[in-house]
């Protein structure tokens, strides 16, 4: 293996180590299944290797990676002809899961803009300001999405429990 290949491999390993789970969860929250989420992480790394962007710091690198994995995942969703079919597939996947994962099924039903904000705030523990930077939104827009996303998540989860 030549030195540039080794360098590429080291870089990919570092990114997977630092951001792998973040990128996977971000994609999972949008595409709704692990196989596609893994593919989206891989596509993101391919873009990174092809473009070899130069970042001034890690924050910019993370911002870029989140943006690319999110766009890739959203594009995958749009490429599929029938969104209802996807939702039904997600529902089939969720049947086999443990009951504790019911909340994830609720998450999949939320609009994409709320998924990203809820994920970054509650799971990745980003501050509102950091989320605003990553998603290129104003702080007030992030706060609003967080509030509405939280309300929607609680409401739909309650409904799901009542139905169950």
């Amino acid at each position: 293996m030549n030195p540039s290949r080794l360098q590429q491999e080291d870089n990919v390993r570092r990114i997977l180590q630092q951001y792998g789970d973040l990128l996977y969860r971000m994609s999972l929250s949008i595409v709704g299944n692990s196989a596609d989420a893994e593919d989206m992480v891989q596509d993101t790394l391919v873009t990174w290797l092809s473009e070899t962007p130069d970042f001034p710091d890690e924050a910019h690198e993370k911002q870029w990676l989140v943006k690319v994995v999110r766009n890739n995942s959203l594009m995958l969703i749009r490429k599929r002809e029938n969104r209802d079919r996807i939702l039904s597939e997600q529902a089939k996947v969720s049947v086999g899961r443990d009951a504790d994962y019911g909340i994830l099924d609720v998450l999949y039903t939320l609009p994409d803009k709320y998924k990203a904000v809820l994920l970054l705030f509650y799971v990745e523990e980003y501050s509102v300001e950091e989320i605003a930077t990553v998603l290129k939104k104003s702080v007030s827009a992030v706060k609003m999405r967080l509030k509405r996303g939280r309300e929607m998540l609680s409401e739909r989860y309650r409904e799901k429990e009542h139905e169950g």
């Binding site: 789970d21 909340i103 509650y122």
Partner: peptide, 13 residues
């Protein structure tokens, strides 16, 4: 719900 989300999503690795 948000705590449940955190718990469930943290397991997704």
């Amino acid at each position: 719900a948000e705590d449940l989300l955190k718990q469930a999503m943290s397991e997704q690795k």
